[in-house]
Computed example of a mutant assay.
Amino acid sequence: MPSVLITGSNRGLGLEWSRQYAKASWRVFATCRHPEEADELRQLAETCRTVSLHRLDVTDADQISALANELEHEPIDVLLNNAGVYYEKYAPLEAPLDYQAWTHTFQVNTMAALRMAKTFIGNLALSEKRLVVAISSHMGSIAEIDHPGSYFYRSSKAALNAVMKGLSLELKPLNIGVLLLHPGWVRTRMGGPDAPLLPEESVRGMRKLIDEFTISNTARFFRYNGTEIPW
């Protein structure tokens, strides 16, 4: 049975990832900060024997270490760094920046993905798929910047892309791959009610890219529909 460890599983894309992988009979290690409040995820875990729910704040090194100890001997085919934050609203140039929010954005969107990957290398090495997935964004593509603003989110995702590219060079000799994915504009709490994509469609497309992944594609950056994104 293939297995996946998913961060930020309590809603939106993370919940949909958990649902689809559970339906596909994968072993799902679903994580979130407050499992006691994640009603839909708890219901999924209660009704599907292949899903387990784990407490994890990806900015908390102690919680990451505790989860690693809990899953020490478990093969993990796909480490799915899905957790992310977006704090910004448009503000005029003269408006002050919330540097604390910017720092937290980097902690969640960039630093946590590398910490998770380094922590769970041993689990990935025990598996067949051996893949680290980072949910990035086309907003992290410098080539695709076409309007001002979103400085926190853009910079955190551009940094994530750079970090994952570097990590791929470290992991390739171990035959562990890295895949960067843009889910599209999705109708979630982050994407808002006007987004054209449903989570089901976005995750279905990204799962296809994961299924088709080979080590020759390590560190490449794709949209959910398979088109490649320039850096």
Rank of each mutant, 00 (worst) to 15 (best):
I210R: 03
T59P: 08
L197I: 01
P92V: 09
W26M: 13
V4H: 02
P35F: 11
P183I: 00
D211F: 08
V133N: 01
K129R: 15
S52D: 08
K165M: 08
S52R: 12
L79N: 03
E37R: 14
S156F: 04
P199N: 09
T47H: 12
A101F: 06
L169G: 12
P96K: 13
L53H: 01
R33H: 13
L171F: 03
D194V: 10
R19K: 15
R130N: 06
T110R: 02
R42I: 07
L180H: 02
G122F: 09
R33W: 08
A101C: 07
V28C: 00
I145P: 03
L44S: 00
L169E: 15
S136R: 03
K172E: 11
A113V: 12
W26P: 00
A134D: 02
D98I: 07
A22N: 02
Y21H: 15
A125L: 14
R33V: 14
F222H: 07
V163I: 13
W102Y: 13
E170P: 05
W26C: 04
Q63L: 12
V203W: 00
D57P: 13
V58P: 06
G14H: 00
E128M: 13
V51N: 01
L56D: 00
S141K: 05
R33N: 11
A91H: 14
P173F: 04
L44Q: 00
S18M: 06
A24M: 09
V28N: 02
V186T: 03
L180F: 04
A112Y: 04
M111V: 11
G122M: 14
W102I: 08
H73C: 10
V178T: 12
L126D: 13
K129G: 05
A158Q: 08
N123S: 07
M206G: 00
Y224I: 00
C48E: 13
G184K: 10
T7N: 12
L167K: 03
V163R: 09
Q107W: 11
S155N: 09
P183V: 03
L114N: 11
R11P: 05
A134R: 00
E37Y: 07
L167G: 01
L198S: 12
Y87K: 12
L198K: 04
F29H: 10
E70W: 15
S150H: 06
N69V: 13
V163G: 08
L180C: 07
S25C: 08
G166M: 14
R42C: 07
H104T: 15
Y87A: 04
E201W: 00
K165L: 14
I215K: 03
M190G: 07
Y99M: 15
S136N: 06
A95E: 15
S137N: 03
I142P: 06
I135M: 09
S216D: 10
N69L: 08
S18V: 07
S155P: 07
P173M: 09
T7R: 10
N123F: 12
P230A: 09
Y224H: 00
L167D: 05
S202E: 01
A112D: 05
